[in-house]
Amino acid sequence: MKKCNNCGAMMNEDAKFCTNCGAAFTETESNQNIDTSENSNSDSNENQTSQMVQNVSNAVKSVEYDKVAKGYWKYFLMTLKNPSTSFTVTDKINGWIQFVLIAILNSLVSVSILTIMPTTESGIGLFFKLFFVQFIINVAGIGILFIFKNFVQKVSTPFNVVTSQYGGLLSINIILLLIVFISALISPIAMISIIMVGVVLVGIVNVIAFNMYLLNGKNNSKLDNFYVAVLANAVVLIIIAIITRIGMEMMIDQMLPYMFNQYMY
């Protein structure tokens, strides 16, 4: 179909003149109508091609994200069960995921505890400040290990690989920080004992992991035993400290009224 430029009526493509107003069609008008139709088809084809490319790109990204997630989950479970297996890790991304998660959890725990203080800044601003500080501390620790490994112990290990190997030794901290965060959400005051135990254990794990990475050698199963033994002893000592404190508080509560009555009367 083509349009009459004089009255706007639609005529067949082979019409020589408009049956409505009698105006004659020129060859140029006919060619313009054909060009418009071809351009419309071309634009449609380009849009379909663009949409197809976008769909393929989204599918590829989805596969990549799924692969990364599965790779990290396998890495996490492996190093959680046997920390020394992290010394065999050669990937360059799982360690960064590990340290980002640790920084996020540390920041969430800190925000949950600090917000009970009325004078403390709260909200997303505090979270990002704590996250930035925590992440910089983690990177500094990785940097120290990288320097010692490469320049002191003469073991050539890329920085990203050091990150993944050292990060694997901290997998248990993900569990501990989750427990502390949930406890802080329930009630920072009522769950203070669990929060204190978790925070202390996180610090102990950091110290153990740092030294394990410096001490790793041919037989790392001994380091696994050392890791578990130190953690077990730390848990026992912390529990004893908590029980002792509770016992002392109960004794003080019972003795104070008696002593008060004795001296007053």
Rank of each mutant, 00 (worst) to 15 (best):
residue 54 Q to V: 04
residue 69 A to V: 10
residue 52 M to A: 15
residue 125 G to E: 02
residue 58 N to R: 11
residue 152 V to T: 06
residue 248 M to E: 09
residue 150 N to D: 01
residue 187 S to A: 09
residue 63 V to S: 00
residue 189 I to C: 10
residue 242 I to F: 10
residue 122 S to E: 07
residue 186 I to V: 13
residue 141 G to V: 04
residue 86 S to I: 03
residue 176 L to E: 01
residue 249 E to A: 10
residue 171 S to E: 01
residue 161 V to G: 09
residue 104 I to R: 01
residue 97 I to V: 14
residue 189 I to H: 14
residue 233 N to M: 12
residue 92 K to F: 13
residue 181 F to D: 08
residue 99 F to C: 04
residue 212 M to V: 07
residue 224 D to L: 12
residue 255 M to H: 06
residue 58 N to M: 12
residue 116 I to Q: 07
residue 87 F to Y: 14
residue 132 F to L: 03
residue 54 Q to L: 08
residue 14 D to C: 12
residue 234 A to D: 00
residue 258 Y to V: 15
residue 13 E to R: 07
residue 127 F to P: 01
residue 191 M to T: 06
residue 77 L to K: 10
residue 67 K to Y: 14
residue 62 S to N: 08
residue 198 G to A: 10
residue 17 F to G: 04
residue 222 K to D: 15
residue 176 L to C: 07
residue 74 K to S: 10
residue 81 K to L: 04
residue 146 F to N: 01
residue 123 G to F: 01
residue 29 E to N: 09
residue 178 L to G: 05
residue 133 V to I: 14
residue 46 E to N: 11
residue 99 F to T: 06
residue 79 T to C: 08
residue 126 L to H: 01
residue 215 L to E: 07
residue 55 N to F: 12
residue 155 V to E: 14
residue 48 Q to H: 15
residue 223 L to A: 02
residue 138 N to R: 03
residue 23 A to E: 11
residue 45 N to F: 02
residue 239 I to R: 06
residue 50 S to W: 15
residue 85 T to G: 04
residue 142 I to S: 03
residue 52 M to S: 15
residue 156 S to E: 14
residue 201 L to N: 03
residue 134 Q to W: 13
residue 173 N to I: 05
residue 188 P to Q: 07
residue 209 A to M: 03
residue 234 A to Q: 07
residue 245 R to W: 15
residue 264 M to E: 06
residue 89 V to P: 04
residue 154 K to E: 06
residue 112 S to P: 10
residue 208 I to M: 03
residue 124 I to R: 04
residue 74 K to R: 05
residue 103 A to M: 02
residue 195 I to P: 05
residue 93 I to C: 11
residue 165 Q to V: 08
residue 78 M to F: 12
residue 130 L to D: 10
residue 125 G to M: 03
residue 100 V to N: 03
residue 235 V to Y: 03
residue 50 S to F: 15
residue 208 I to P: 00
residue 104 I to T: 00
residue 221 S to Q: 14
residue 148 F to P: 04
residue 114 L to F: 00
residue 226 F to A: 12
residue 228 V to F: 13
residue 66 D to F: 09
residue 211 N to Y: 07
residue 35 D to Q: 08
residue 164 S to E: 03
residue 21 C to P: 06
residue 20 N to G: 12
residue 168 G to Q: 05
residue 56 V to T: 07
residue 201 L to P: 03
residue 64 E to G: 09
residue 91 D to N: 12
residue 138 N to E: 08
residue 85 T to N: 04
